[in-house]
Amino acid sequence: MLDIIGVEKTFNPGTVNAKKALNGLNLHLNEGDFVTVIGGNGAGKSTMLNMIAGVYPVDCGSIVIDGVNVTKLPEHKRAKYLGRVFQDPMTGTAADMQIEENLALAARRGARRTLRAGITPKERKEYKELLKILDLGLEERLTAKVGLLSGGQRQALTLLMASIKKPKLLLLDEHTAALDPKTAAKVLEISDKLIKENGLTAMMVTHNMKDAIAYGNRLIMMNEGHIIFDVSGEEKKSLTVEALIQKFSQTSGQEFANDRALLS
């Protein structure tokens, strides 16, 4: 479903602030994979998701989604393959538009936007049913401005918008990090439900190791712009937080030792 082949990205190249964010990144996702992504700050997790979405161009390498090479496509043209939820609840929705208008915008992702009605009465009924899945009472507030919703409600709505067109790939970029623990748990639950019910392929970046273990069928750990650890199936199910932390220091520690060996 997704192939990332030898992708590299350096921000601010040629300056003192040069930062190699992705370094020879390779990844293959099968259809239906739900991958959790962990790693330290600056490991390249968010950059990887932004590269897939086309927020920045790659320096080299290629990105293929469901057999289509999207490496050179601009962000808005890749959107038809993707559903995205961001860390900041403000990013994923248009605050000054109604709940139903936001859903209608998402429902037209990948289609040409014509002079037909922006939202039809039939859609309104569908959205009402769809919003019931969230169990947040939003189905009674179809015409409320999204700016009036809480962060958790906005993230839940963004999730619904992201999955409404059954994307080839759902990208969740620390989408619960800005929420309080209780709301975060609820949004995670909704994410899991939507992914399972729609049979989506998904990637979820998280800082919470417990969540990374509990959700999905596969886990990858990133460090210094590439993947250092990749487990799936039974092996992933038996992971513990301790084992993961040990693995992290062990793997990055080994690299550290190698670097020192090179330098000395």
């Binding site: 962000e75 993707l82 248009a94 000054d96 992702r109 002079l115």
Partner: peptide
């Protein structure tokens, strides 16, 4: 109120969201 007009409104309100929803 049309698809095109709504997408122009969305562009002004939140360009990041608009791009993510496939709006040019």
């Amino acid at each position: 109120g049309t698809e095109m007009g709504s997408s122009i409104r969305a562009t002004g309100i939140n360009p990041n969201m608009s791009r993510a929803q496939g709006i040019n």
